[in-house]
């Protein structure tokens, strides 16, 4: 099982750049980039912050299987 995310999709739908989203959740732009590219697995805290910033349930942003 791998962690998949739809972070980039929802970020773009919200009209945010990586830098803007990073500023909202108080991390670096590089962290947003590596999370979107599945290079870095965010902590629960960061995942919840992203969920809050994008106004999406965390289960929509992150899943254990590839979205159908």
């Amino acid at each position: 099982m791998t962690l998949h995310n739809t972070l980039a999709t929802h970020r773009k739908a919200a009209g945010l750049t990586q830098a803007q989203l990073a500023e909202r959740v108080n991390v670096s732009r590089k962290t947003i980039n590596t999370v979107e590219n599945a290079v870095f697995i965010p902590s629960t805290l960061l995942a919840l912050k992203l969920s809050q910033a994008l106004e999406q349930p965390v289960e929509v942003l992150f899943s254990l299987e590839a979205p159908s």
Binding site: N26, V27, S28, F40, S43
Partner: peptide, 11 residues
Amino acid sequence: IAAAWDEQARH
């Protein structure tokens, strides 16, 4: 500081 030392940087 918070962004420079975010969780990925600390990791």
